[in-house]
Design a protein around this nucleic acid. Structure first.
Lengths: 202, 202
DNA sequence: AACTACAGAATGAATGTTCATTCCGTAATG
DNA sequence: CATTACGGAATGAACATTCATTCTGTAGTT
């Protein structure tokens, strides 16, 4: 609708907003929401304390913006150009490979999202976005189950376990527990697939 | 050494200490460390604000006491009278059944432990206790691997995934996502066993 | 047994600190 | 020159912790 002259102002504003979001992401991921002071964020972003309130209504709005930004990024990695016609195993591989790549490219964002999961200060917009990542995985599991590809147990439990296992390896990697993270992640895919599919089926 | 008369005083003191620990456990589990105010804890425990500081040096010492208490409880569930002579599969079943029972009997403690995992304010005593739970699981996995029972992938990754999967189901249960939690937990054991052991081996 | 005096446990108002948010003088923009 | 954005000191609320005081169980006295 409006775009003719991306004035110097607008450019700076966007850059400043991004700096704040990035600093907040890092600090919230490291110290949690309540453990991070707003002036701490402003200092890390290289702006004045008051400036944050020009871009975000308050601390809660800030954390929700960070959350939505990170979640949208994750959703993009997961879904952009996804090939829904591939075999179940290949779709699983796509999911795995995409989530892995997101976690590698944006480790801080991944940690942040895990930490703030289901936090009471997340608003409707954040919760709605949460679903946008879950839905395609849910549908995939439902279809795989209907086809008899996956185990015949409640999807809720299966999804919870697979996500938990995935998040577990990533966390172990971040903590430096894995000698060869790349290899571990590759093997983890097979482990999770065996978890997912019927025993006996390869 | 000293035990003759557990005087009224000593009884009251122990009861009060327990009330504080229990209130703190619940609030920290629900709102996190930084999200919980000390006077909030004292109110929930039914004692004065100052009383907390008669029993704990400060807020950090309090959260560490809560952590150690909960972790010791978990360790007791996991290890007391464990039968190390059983088959690998039966040992696995013991671990699973014991952890499950702990999570059912003490859901708040389990949530607390998951939430405070690797928090920067945990002291040496807490970190040491952490190991006491991990060690026997670690040894079990090492032996199973040596015998060719488990998958031939790094234990660190396997343990991280199994713990993640277990914590995932429990979390799903707490969030009310599972229609039949008991059944889900029973099936989850098999899923995790398949995760653990060589593909093809039953 | 009834009474008194004492030690130390409990209390919550008071204290100093930290934090989220606001305000205003200054600088940059158009 | 008029507007808008900025930084960071200022503000007031909330917090962790302290401390002067009250309360309570215990031991000693009659």
């Amino acid at each position: 609708m409006d775009s003719p002259p991306p004035s110097v102002r607008a450019k700076n504003a966007e850059a400043k907003r991004d700096a704040i979001l990035q600093a907040a992401l890092r600090l919230f991921a490291e110290q949690g929401f309540h453990g991070t002071a707003v002036p701490e964020v402003s200092a890390a972003a290289g702006v004045g304390a008051g400036t944050i309130y020009r871009y975000f209504e308050n601390k809660e709005a800030l954390v929700n913006s960070v959350y939505c930004h990170a979640k949208r990024q994750m959703a993009a990695y997961l879904l952009d150009d996804f090939n829904y016609t591939a075999s179940r195993r290949d779709q699983f591989h796509q999911f795995w490979e995409r989530l892995t790549r997101f976690a590698q490219d944006h480790p801080v964002a991944f940690k942040f999202l895990e930490l703030q999961d289901h936090a009471p200060y997340l608003d409707e917009a954040s919760k709605k976005l949460e679903l946008s990542v879950l839905m395609p995985i849910w549908n995939f599991c439902e279809q795989a189950k209907a086809e008899g590809v996956s185990r015949n147990i409640p999807q809720e439990a299966l999804i919870a376990m697979m996500w938990g296992a995935f998040a577990g390896v990533i966390k172990a990697q971040h903590l430096g527990y894995l000698k060869d993270p790349q290899a571990a992640l590759r093997e983890a895919e097979n482990v999770c697939w065996d978890m997912f599919c019927r025993p006996g089926a390869s």
